[in-house]
Write a protein that binds this DNA or RNA. Structure first.
Lengths: 194, 194
DNA sequence: CATGTTGTTGGACTCAGTACAAGTAAGGGG
DNA sequence: CCCCTTACTTGTACTGAGTCCAACAACATG
């Protein structure tokens, strides 16, 4: 947890350094057009080292959010049969709390400059699915039927991801992200076309 | 539309042949472990030819559903300001009507035998996102706010994809897929945790 | 200085996907 | 029957992601 500079060769780089170099290049020349070699060249390390810090190119963008989602999934699965709306809301709010200085926020805001729209659609879908699966499992544990649980999970996951996207697009700070999320959550229970 | 054997060299293979070879190999040794070269070797054509029939490896699984989704998106975008529940339902039902002999159905049913669960999660998410986007656009066109429209889209998309998955998992034929979808759609407007 | 630990580096590799030039099997027209 | 057009196939060469690994480098400690 603390700084532990104990033994062994010191790191030549860091997640932050690499993420910064990557973000610059994504903005300059687009995500697709930026190779991992480009990133490590700018960061001053070798290509191999990249994978000591990130598991993939897209991990640069998503690792921050993924860690939060992992934590939320654990919290959700700990709920057992006590799950309900307010409790689940508390488990999910951690995903979006204090989400300011993240490469993903930058990517969401500059999606078209980075040529990311396709990539983001795909990867957003994966995160949506993970959140939805967690919520659905929690709902299943309280006796909700499978399909209903999945629809519930999808709606709640959309509340998380949509509020995140809308918030990032409009400059990350205008409105509170949590307010945005609560508004989305309210709309889950007041949908049109019924 | 009709058989048009007009000019030029006749095809040495077909989507069906390749899809069949691919499905066999996916079942035998898993999706990841099956390379495109494996598929074309079994189908008796060269690796290059694969891309005359499919745009990617995952396209073997998804092209059938993707075509249906494309049609549904067109139908949705044609709705203009007249969109409402029943009309949207009619646009989406085409996605799942008569969905029997598809590689995707096989893959959904044998997901773990194929070692697909990760891959399916990712790709399902993309289709979910496309459907959700189409529904959300249609809703936006009728004056619904952006976030509410996205939650609506996600819920409806989950109704489509979840009913498809559940139906495929339990043997594709037990219950009518359309009944499954309508039940899911009803649950959109009767969710727990409210 | 010897040693263990941690991290870096380069190289070899597989596989997806792209690009393209050259070859090949048809039909149709002279 | 030859030639042209059309459509499809094939081999080859390429890029880029991601994996694996052995060799090497820098630190702390005794």
């Amino acid at each position: 947890m603390s700084t532990a500079p104990r033994a062994g060769r010191p790191r030549a780089s860091s997640r932050e350094t690499l993420a910064e170099a990557a973000s610059e290049l994504f903005l300059e020349q687009g995500y697709e057009a930026t190779s991992i070699a480009d990133i490590t060249r700018r960061a001053g390390v070798s290509r191999s080292s990249f994978f000591n810090y990130f598991s993939s190119k897209s991990d640069v963008l998503w690792s921050g959010l993924d860690a939060r989602i992992d934590a939320a999934l654990v919290a959700l699965s700990d709920l057992g049969t006590d799950a309900d709306g307010p409790v689940a809301r508390r488990a999910l709010i951690g995903i979006i709390q204090d989400f300011a200085p993240d490469p993903l926020a930058l990517a969401l805001r500059n999606a078209q400059a980075m040529g990311l729209e396709e990539e983001l659609l795909r990867d957003t879908g994966l995160r949506h699915a993970r959140i939805a699966g967690g919520v659905a499992s929690a709902a299943c544990a309280t006796g909700v039927s499978a399909v209903r649980a999945e629809v519930l999970g999808a709606a709640w996951a959309a509340a998380v991801m949509s509020s995140l996207r809308v918030w990032a697009e409009q400059g990350a700070g205008q409105a509170s992200l949590e307010e945005c999320f609560d508004e989305a959550l309210r709309s889950v229970y007041d949908l049109p076309w019924g």
